[in-house]
């Protein structure tokens, strides 16, 4: 998704000129939303210039990694446009999109980014006016939220990096990838799972993977103690230690023994299980 990255870096360039303008990237599915945006243009509906749109064949193409990577690069808002539920050109693509967006929002929340900086809207090919409304409203909303903290604060950036790393773990990809089918079509035992319970389970896993990723980001090239990590992450130290137990089990982090009673940990840069 180089074009999206390019849009952000271009916007960065503008920023030096002075007043801040929100940088928003829109991903539109070819069959509904992109057509809707076209219709919007044909009908001459107006909307702010902040958005840079990228056409994809289906909204499911947008993996959490693409979105989080953009936030990492400094995007202030991201809009995803897809077909209405039931209208997907690829039958059920947007069901998966919904699940993924839920994960993305959860990860953004965990990372301290207002999840409303990411918006998913269903825009059909005939909803030109809706498209202009959505973009206008979203741009205003992002403007109110102010600029992303990622570029200014290292800590904020580290958190978004961690969210991005967490989003590519096999565990979260597997859970979110299976979520829709488990809820609707049933599992290997031919039972369907309760939506709320499954969401709770995924949220806990998401939080765990995010926090573990954050530990790895923070301890990369810098040896840190559990207490240090706890205070940076604002996570209780016993929980940090439990994450470290898992990370050591997976060969992702190693212990160092400085003098005294407080061991520190450093991320192992290459290798480990993923």
């Amino acid at each position: 998704m180089a074009e999206a990255q390019h849009a952000i870096s271009e916007a960065k360039h503008d920023e030096k000129a002075g007043s801040w303008e929100p940088k928003i990237v829109g991903f539109l599915c070819n069959w509904c939303s992109y057509a809707g945006a076209d219709l919007c243009g044909v009908s001459r509906y107006q909307y702010p210039t902040n958005i840079r749109t990228v056409r994809v064949m289906c909204s499911t193409r947008i993996s959490p990694h693409i979105v989080l990577d953009l936030f990492k690069a400094g995007a202030d808002g991201i809009l995803l446009g897809g077909c209405h539920i039931g209208d997907c050109h690829y039958i059920s693509g947007n069901f998966y999109t919904e699940k993924r967006v839920r994960l993305m929002k959860k990860l953004l929340e965990d990372a301290g980014v207002d999840p409303s900086r990411l918006r998913l809207e269903w825009v059909s090919a005939s909803e030109g006016e809706k498209f202009s409304k959505v973009v206008t409203e979203f741009t205003d909303h992002v403007r109110k939220l102010g600029p992303s903290a990622v570029k200014k604060q290292e800590a904020a950036k580290a958190k978004v990096m961690a969210a991005d790393d967490a989003s590519v773990t096999f565990r979260l990809r597997a859970l979110v990838g299976k979520e829709y089918n488990l809820e609707t079509k049933g599992n290997v035992y031919k039972n369907t799972l309760d939506k709320a319970e499954l969401e709770k389970l995924i949220d806990v896993a998401t939080m765990d993977e995010f926090e573990r990723s954050l530990i790895l980001v923070l301890a990369k090239g810098k040896s840190r103690s559990v207490k240090e990590l706890g205070s940076i992450m604002e996570v209780p130290t016993d929980k940090v230690l439990r994450h470290i137990v898992v990370l050591r089990q997976k060969n992702l982090i190693s212990m160092e023994h400085p003098e005294g009673f407080t061991p520190t940990y450093r991320t192992i840069e290459i290798g480990g299980e993923q």
Binding site: S225, K227, D238, V240, L241, I244, M255, F261, P263
Partner: peptide
């Protein structure tokens, strides 16, 4: 075990004296 043989205390990972 969890700490691979270093004695740590569960609250904050310090080595207990």
């Amino acid at each position: 075990g969890p700490y691979m043989g270093t004695v740590l205390r569960p609250s904050d990972g310090d080595i207990p004296e």
